[in-house]
Each structure stands twice: as C-alpha cells, then as structure tokens.
Amino acid sequence: MSEKILVALAIMAAIWWLGQRRKTTLLSISEARELLGVSARASEDEVRSAHRRLIGRVHPDAGGSQALASRVNAARDLLVAELNRKSA
C-alpha cells in the first residue's frame, strides 16, 4: 500500500515540477530590449552589463520579486541567444 502512495506522490511531484517549468515568461526581442534598456545594436557585453545593473535592483535578495528577476534573466538569455544566432 505504501508503495502505491509513494508512486502517486512521485507522479504528483513530477506534474507540479513540469508546471513550474512552463511558467517561464515568454518575451519578444523588442520587449527584452525594452526591459533591459538596450538598443537593437547592443553588443553582448552591453546586454550583460544592463542585466547586471537591473538584476541587482530586482533580485529577491535585494527586495525584488522572483517573478521580475526571472523576467530579467529571460530577457538577457533571449538577447544573448539572438546575438549568438546572428554571429553564427
């Protein structure tokens, strides 16, 4: 009986985990640029620098929120990936 309960709990945990992963914020390139305050011509260094400045203010450890920090991180990741795609 306890094995069935453990399996059920494991399945519930997996479903919860997958649901959490899907909560990532989807941004467009223009939204990501606006959020980080960089131009369309920004280099990777400029994107990373803007990210560092902003994440320092919105990180949960600095009194910000997890949701906003995730959005700022997603913006950085999107813009860096776009720059890498263009240079490849």
Rank of each mutant, 00 (worst) to 15 (best):
M1N: 12
S2R: 15
E3P: 02
E3W: 13
K4T: 14
K4L: 15
K4G: 14
I5R: 15
A8R: 15
A8Y: 14
L9G: 06
A10R: 10
A14I: 10
A14M: 13
I15E: 15
W16E: 14
W16Q: 15
G19P: 02
Q20I: 12
Q20M: 13
K23R: 12
T24E: 13
T25F: 07
S28L: 11
S28D: 11
I29G: 05
I29L: 10
S30I: 06
S30T: 13
E31T: 01
E31N: 04
E31D: 13
A32L: 07
R33H: 05
E34M: 06
L36G: 07
L36D: 09
G37E: 06
V38Q: 00
S39W: 01
A40K: 13
R41A: 08
S43G: 04
S43L: 01
E44F: 00
D45F: 02
D45I: 05
V47E: 00
V47W: 00
R48E: 04
R48D: 04
S49G: 11
H51Y: 15
R52M: 05
R53P: 06
I55K: 01
G56R: 08
G56Q: 09
A62Y: 06
A62W: 02
G63Y: 13
S65F: 06
A67S: 11
L68C: 06
A69L: 15
S70F: 04
R71I: 01
N73E: 04
A74N: 07
A75W: 02
A75Q: 01
A75S: 02
R76A: 10
D77Y: 07
L79G: 04
V80C: 06
N84T: 13
N84C: 08
R85K: 14
R85Q: 07
R85P: 02
S87D: 01
S87E: 03
